Simulated assay, not measured.
Amino acid sequence: MSAELLKDAERALGEREALPEDLRVLAAKLVGALEDVMRVAVSSGERLPTPSYRCTSGAVADVLRGHGTAPRLMAPKS
């Protein structure tokens, strides 16, 4: 279902004359899909064991406290 939704989104965003109602329907479906992703992520996170270390300072701790942003991962150089 997610692959089909992504194709629909790519198609709609590629159209210059996309109808507002079609975009609203697409947005609603995307919101539903993101809600599903969040539910799975939270559920998976709740089952993870508590790490044996405690991060109290630095950029990682800021992100864990809800401040700052996580660093972006870079693709490996080929």
Rank of each mutant, 00 (worst) to 15 (best):
Leu48Pro: 00
Asp36Ile: 04
Ala75Val: 03
Pro71Thr: 07
Ser57Gly: 06
Leu64Lys: 01
Ser52Asn: 09
Pro76Gly: 10
Thr69Pro: 01
Gly45Thr: 08
Ala70Trp: 01
Glu46Cys: 09
Cys55Thr: 10
Leu13Lys: 04
Gly58Glu: 00
Val37Ile: 15
Asp36Asn: 15
Arg72Asp: 08
Arg16Pro: 06
Val42Arg: 12
Pro76Ser: 12
His67Leu: 09
Gly32Val: 08
Ala27His: 10
Asp22Ile: 01
Ala41Met: 13
Cys55Met: 11
Ala41Pro: 04
Val37Thr: 13
Leu34His: 04
Glu15Ser: 07
Asp36Glu: 15
Ser78Thr: 10
Asp62Lys: 03
Leu34Trp: 06
Glu35Pro: 00
Ala61Tyr: 00
Ala27Cys: 13
His67Thr: 04
Val37Pro: 00
Arg65Phe: 03
Ala61Ser: 12
Cys55His: 07
Pro51Gln: 07
Glu17Gly: 06
Leu26Asp: 05
Ala28Phe: 06
Asp36Cys: 11
Ala41Phe: 02
Leu23Ser: 02
Leu26Glu: 06
Leu19Val: 10
Glu35Arg: 14
Ser43Asp: 14
Ala33Gly: 08
Glu46Ser: 08
Val63Ser: 03
Ser52Gln: 10
Pro49Gln: 11
Pro71Asn: 06
Val63Tyr: 01
Glu17Cys: 04
Ala41Thr: 13
Leu34Met: 15
Val37Phe: 07
Val25Leu: 14
Met74Cys: 09
Asp22Ala: 02
Lys29Ala: 05
Val40Cys: 08
Pro20Ile: 07
Leu73Asp: 11
Ser52Leu: 10
Val25Trp: 05
Thr56Ser: 12
Arg24Asn: 11
His67Lys: 11
Glu17Ser: 13
Gly14Ala: 04
Thr56Lys: 07
Asp36Ala: 15
Glu46Trp: 02
Ala75Pro: 01
Leu34Ser: 10
Leu23Cys: 05
Arg11Ile: 00
Val31Tyr: 04
Pro49Val: 04
Asp22Gly: 03
Pro51Thr: 06
Gly32His: 14
Val63Ala: 14
Ser43Ala: 15
Glu15Asn: 05
Val40His: 12
Gly32Cys: 09
Ala27Asn: 13
Val31Lys: 04
Glu15Trp: 02
Ala75Cys: 03
Lys29Cys: 00
Met38Gly: 09
Arg11Ala: 07
Val25Lys: 15
Arg11Cys: 00
Leu23Phe: 05
Arg65Met: 05
Pro49Ser: 12
Ala41Gly: 07
Val60Lys: 09
Thr69Tyr: 02
Leu13Phe: 14
Asp36Gly: 15
Ala28Thr: 14
Cys55Glu: 13
Thr50Ser: 08
Cys55Ile: 14
Arg24Gln: 14
Leu13Val: 06
Arg72Ala: 12
Ala27Tyr: 11
Val63Glu: 01
Thr69Ala: 11
Glu21Asn: 05
Gly58Asp: 00
Gly14His: 07
Pro20Glu: 07
Thr56Arg: 10
Leu26Ala: 08
